[in-house]
């Protein structure tokens, strides 16, 4: 990627202006089919959502009841929405401090010449192959409060004298349960990213470190991790966006409950837009969610990812 970037830059200065224009036109011509679909399926619906977010509209017939910014006002003052944002941030933070370190560790472990590593790779990656709904259903049955049905409670109640845990039925435990399922599901994906990143690190550098007498931990700390930084940044980026938009798994497991304890922004949007038939309100939630993700994306690209390009130029 970095090489391409540099090549592109040089290109720009060498070509004559006429040739450049012609190139742009050719590029545009080839982009037309994609652009058409991009506008119809991405840009147009976004504009439409923005338009409907100013209406009190149930989704049936034309939107006529214009309410201005009232939907936004209501969302931003709704304590349930605040809870949804808070839960989104909680998943983000937990993902970053729990999920990512574990997946780096796993990737490093299955890279080395450990016996049976392809077996472990498959095992760790398998949950990612399941759809979110299947993963959700699996974990719902794991978390069943009745010890005769729920696996985790069956083990837990082996300790004499303890009461079965309520898991998804308890407002204070539900987020933990959901997070465990999310980690289980996405660990393999991030591990795969890191494995790809590790494959790009030239073996010689680490070998040089070994010759210099560095310990395993020193190699990981001072050689592997810094060279893995590009992948870490990508992984963090995907993880944060995924956490903010999380819907499927939580919807299957808890429907955002009990009493909004596991509400996320996407669940909030669905509940209002489709279950309460307040589609205008739902659109406004969608717009806010889009803005939050957009602001994060742009600032993250500016502040963090930029270093990748610079790194590419100066290395």
């Amino acid at each position: 990627m970095n090489d391409l970037f540099i090549a592109g830059n040089q290109h720009k200065y060498i070509l004559s202006p006429q040739k450049r224009n012609r190139d742009t036109l050719t590029a545009l011509f080839f982009l037309i089919p994609t652009l058409i679909f991009f506008f119809i399926f991405i840009i147009y619906p976004i504009i439409q959502s923005l338009y409907y977010s100013f209406f009190n509209w149930k989704g049936f017939g034309p939107a006529i009841n214009f309410v201005g910014l009232r939907n936004y006002e209501k969302i931003l003052t709704d304590s349930v929405f605040a809870k949804a944002v808070g839960n989104g941030l909680l998943i983000v933070v937990l993902s970053l401090i729990v999920q990512l370190p574990i997946s780096i560790a796993l990737a490093i472990m299955v890279r080395n010449d450990m016996p049976g590593r392809s077996f472990f790779r498959t095992i760790f990656f398998m949950p990612f192959v399941f759809s979110e709904s299947i993963a959700g259903i699996i974990w719902v049955s794991m978390f069943k409060p009745d010890p005769s049905i729920g696996f985790l409670n069956a083990i837990w109640t082996l300790i004499p004298g303890v009461k079965p845990l309520e898991f998804l039925g308890d407002t204070s435990q539900v987020m933990m349960c959901v997070f465990i399922a999310l980690t289980w599901k996405y660990l393999g994906f991030h591990m795969l990213l890191y494995m790809a990143g590790l494959a790009n690190i030239p073996r010689e550098i680490e070998e040089a470190a070994i010759i210099d007498g560095a310990s395993n931990w020193q190699i990981i700390r001072n050689v592997t991790l810094p060279l893995l930084s590009t992948t870490i940044r990508t992984s963090v980026y995907l993880s944060v966006l995924g956490s903010l938009q999380q819907f499927g798994l939580i919807w299957i497991m808890s429907k955002g409950g009990p009493v909004n304890a596991s509400e996320t922004m996407a669940i909030y949007m669905y509940r209002f837009g489709f279950m309460r038939l307040a589609l205008g309100y739902g659109c406004a939630v969608g717009v806010i969610l889009l803005l939050i993700c957009l602001i994060f994306s742009v600032s993250y690209q500016r502040l963090v990812k930029q270093q990748d390009y610079l790194g590419g130029l100066y290395s």
């Binding site: 978390f143 069943k144 409060p145 009745d146 309520e166 998804l168 039925g169 407002t171 409950g257 009493v259």
Partner: peptide, 21 residues
């Protein structure tokens, strides 16, 4: 109610009664 009833769905409810629990 049953333990963890806030996390139960209707099929759980039917099962609890149907199984005599």
């Amino acid at each position: 109610f049953q333990d963890g009833f806030l996390g139960s769905i209707y099929n759980d409810e039917g099962g609890l009664v149907g199984n005599g629990k």
